[in-house]
Simulated scan of single mutants.
Amino acid sequence: MLNRVILIGRLTRDPELRYTPSGVAVTQFTLAVDRPFTAQGGEREADFIPIVTWRQLAETCANYLRKGRLTAVEGRIQVRNYENNEGKRVYVTEVIADNVRFLESNRDNNGGAAPREESPFGGGSGGGNRGNSSGYSRNNQDPFSDEGKPIDISDDDLPF
């Protein structure tokens, strides 16, 4: 049996961080995911899928995610039910995320006005470029950008 889901969409609002009575962090947010087709009027429809994260991932999502940010979520679908105040049984379907990737940096979403946040997940373009106008950090420079010129490496640096 397999219960696995991968979604890419935009947050409809800022995540809500709460703590259980035992102190475990839980964050809830909704992801708007476009459908792969357009409606009769030519408009694109979307599904609004509730996402739940727990523990350290919940705190990280609450700190870094904001409304409108493009985000990838990987997890499993869970259906739970409870009895509401009127005595009716209510069913809730949600995705319990175990992996969240930030696909946009803060700069991408605000037109370059704010400094880029460091993403703790390293997903997408969320980290590593702070303060470097070339688009690459020192650690991420293309080692083959010298257009075929020999690379100066001493024999002591070679692993073999």
Rank of each mutant, 00 (worst) to 15 (best):
T20L: 02
L57M: 12
E59Y: 05
F160C: 02
F121T: 13
N63R: 13
R44W: 01
E118W: 13
R69C: 00
F29I: 00
T20V: 08
D155Y: 02
R10A: 04
P50V: 12
L65W: 06
L2G: 00
G123Q: 05
N129Q: 13
G75C: 09
F160Q: 05
E94Y: 06
E118G: 03
E45T: 00
E74R: 09
F37K: 09
S137L: 03
N109K: 08
C61W: 04
T38P: 00
R101M: 11
E118L: 07
L103I: 10
D157S: 13
R130A: 12
E147Y: 14
R44T: 07
I51D: 09
V33N: 01
E147N: 13
P120S: 12
N3A: 01
I153C: 00
A62V: 02
K67Q: 11
E43H: 07
I8K: 14
V90N: 03
E86T: 05
F48C: 04
A46S: 15
R138G: 03
N3D: 05
D155I: 11
D142E: 08
T30Y: 02
F102C: 10
V90A: 02
S137T: 05
K149L: 09
L158H: 04
S145H: 07
P143T: 14
L7P: 04
D152N: 13
G124H: 12
G131W: 14
G23F: 10
N129M: 10
G126M: 12
P115R: 15
D146I: 10
R10C: 01
R10H: 09
N85C: 01
Y136M: 09
G123S: 14
S133E: 11
L2S: 05
R4P: 00
N110R: 12
G124A: 06
G23D: 10
S105C: 07
R35G: 06
A97M: 09
Q141I: 15
G122F: 11
V26P: 00
I96H: 08
E147M: 07
S133I: 02
E59T: 09
P143Q: 13
G41F: 09
G127Y: 08
G128M: 13
R138C: 01
P143R: 15
L70V: 14
D14P: 00
D142A: 10
G87C: 03
